[in-house]
Nucleic acid binder design. Structure first.
Length: 423
RNA sequence: GGAGAGAUGGCCGAGUGGACUAAGGCGCUUGACUCGAAAUCAAGUGACCCGGUGACGGGUCCGGGGGUUCGAAUCCCUCUCUCUCCGCCA
């Protein structure tokens, strides 16, 4: 959520920024609501102050048979009026919050201005896209052949867009999770295994709701998490953190559940886009002064996994037209997939600045200043990495002419074998 | 699922209608004492909103929401969560 006061004072700048990200939000409406709120609060407070004073006076004459009842009548009129004014002020406040929940974050000045993902800027390419001396197959064929993926059975059990791992596929999945957790912990992240179901409040806090209701799976009153970002960021909801503790780093393993609404026809084959997948997620809470440095480090932490897995990849800065609702800046890491002859997103790392912190009420008291005002933290997160897509990359990059798959050295202790043999 | 108890500032904890403008303690900050420290003493220590360049002034907040009242931390209704006991379960 944007800061209402700040927004009110910088409407033109916000209009420009929102236009860059192709938002059709009408800030004129906000301006009106905000002005209305100011007026309502002022009137209410003036009357309340008066009431507080008169109430004290009333105590002195309450028992007077003449003045007592008369003043009580007067105060009752004032009391009724104040009740109305209070409702008005509260309604104005609520209207503003309601409105702001649908306003996306403003892109940071360093974000490339553009219309769409075509305007994303590649900032570095690491490793050579692998050239195979035979015809590369897509992961669903490779995985089926070595017996780690069974998509027909997945469809039989759960319908379209599900993955079923079997045999070494299970060890690959769990081994990668453990591997990624270990890599992150080396860099100071505390491992977390969060609940997979969260309150509506938590989904609001990180910005999935209310705007993207149709993307989420839900039970009676709980939502299945679309990413561990939701439970982990909300761990500190409505808290004032000690500035000494920042940056706080968590690495979480969880399943993720997504409807993939609007993705009909895209990535229908394989496990690139499924309703349930596992992911290791990096989450940080940082001060505003350091959050952009922390973003670079976080991207580096995610890249470290790919480097150790010997997978070629590139990093792109998303343009204003492609950036997510809550993000101020976002990098995508895309891994090379020879079987599909393309780079494919495997991680998305964002700085949300105080957008989520404001929604979720996550503040900190600046270090070394016990009397300092609490300030909103900056929240960041990024995949480190999406496990299903990592398996896709390992299968496609490691495939051999004979149908086997050679895994990177670093994974051997985690999976138990170096080569997956065709069945 | 049944029965009971509870939710107050960073923490502990008092508070059953008007001086609560939330006691007291812990913690923290500053000062005094000290060569320095500890101990001791003294003062200060919440969040948010509105107005003001500022000093400051005003308002709201005692788990959430609603109600009674001239006036609510305090009385009533309701919801949520926590704890204890019983039942059930991995």
């Amino acid at each position: 959520m944007l800061d209402p006061k700040n927004l009110f004072q910088n409407l033109e700048r916000a209009r420009t920024k929102l236009a860059q990200r192709r938002s059709n939000v009408d800030l004129g409406q906000f301006e009106q609501l905000y002005q209305k709120r100011l007026d309502a609060i002022r009137t209410f407070e003036e009357n309340r102050a008066l009431q507080n004073r008169l109430s004290q006076d009333f105590k002195k004459v309450a028992r007077d048979p003449e003045a007592g009842p008369r003043m009580r009548e007067e105060l009752k009129v004032l009391s009724d009026r104040i009740r109305e004014l209070e409702k008005e002020a509260a309604a104005a406040e609520a209207a503003i919050n309601e409105f702001l929940l649908f306003v996306p974050n403003l892109p940071h000045d360093s974000v490339p201005v553009g219309e769409s993902e075509a305007d994303n800027v590649v900032v570095r390419v690491v490793g050579e896209p692998k050239k195979l001396d035979f015809e590369a197959k897509p992961h669903w064929e490779v995985g089926q052949r070595v017996g780690v993926l069974d998509l027909e059975t997945a469809a039989k059990v759960s319908g379209a867009r599900f993955a079923l791992y079997r045999g070494y596929g299970v060890y690959l999945e769990l081994g990668l999770a453990r591997f990624m957790l270990d890599v992150a912990r080396e860099s100071g992240y505390e491992p977390i295994l969060p609940p997979y179901m969260v309150l509506r409040e938590s989904m609001m806090g990180t910005g999935q709701l209310p705007k993207f209701e149709e993307e989420a799976f839900k039970t009676d009153d709980l939502y299945l998490i679309p990413t561990a970002e939701v439970p982990v960021t909300n761990m500190h909801r409505d808290e004032i953190l000690d500035g000494e503790r920042l940056p706080i780093r968590y690495v979480a393993y969880s399943s993720c559940f997504r409807r993939e609404a609007g993705a009909a026809g895209r990535d229908t084959r394989g496990i690139t886009r499924v309703h349930q997948f596992q992911k290791v997620e990096l989450v940080k809470f940082a001060t505003p002064e350091t959050s952009y440095d922390e973003l670079e480090k976080l991207v580096g932490n995610a890249e470290e996994v790919l480097k150790r897995l010997e997978l070629p990849y590139r990093v792109s800065a998303l343009s204003t037209g492609d950036i997510g609702f809550s993000a101020a800046k976002c990098y995508d890491i895309e891994v090379w997939l020879p079987g599909q002859n393309t780079y494919r997103e495997i991680s998305s790392c964002s700085n949300f600045e105080d957008f989520q912190a404001r929604r979720a009420g996550i503040r900190y008291r600046p270090a070394g200043d016990p009397k300092g005002k609490p300030r909103f933290v900056h929240t960041l997160n990024g995949s480190g990495l999406a496990i299903g897509r990592t398996i896709v990359a390992l299968l496609e990059n490691g495939q051999q002419a004979d149908g086997s798959v050679v895994l990177p050295e670093a994974l051997v202790p985690y999976v138990g074998v170096r080569v997956l043999e065709p069945r």
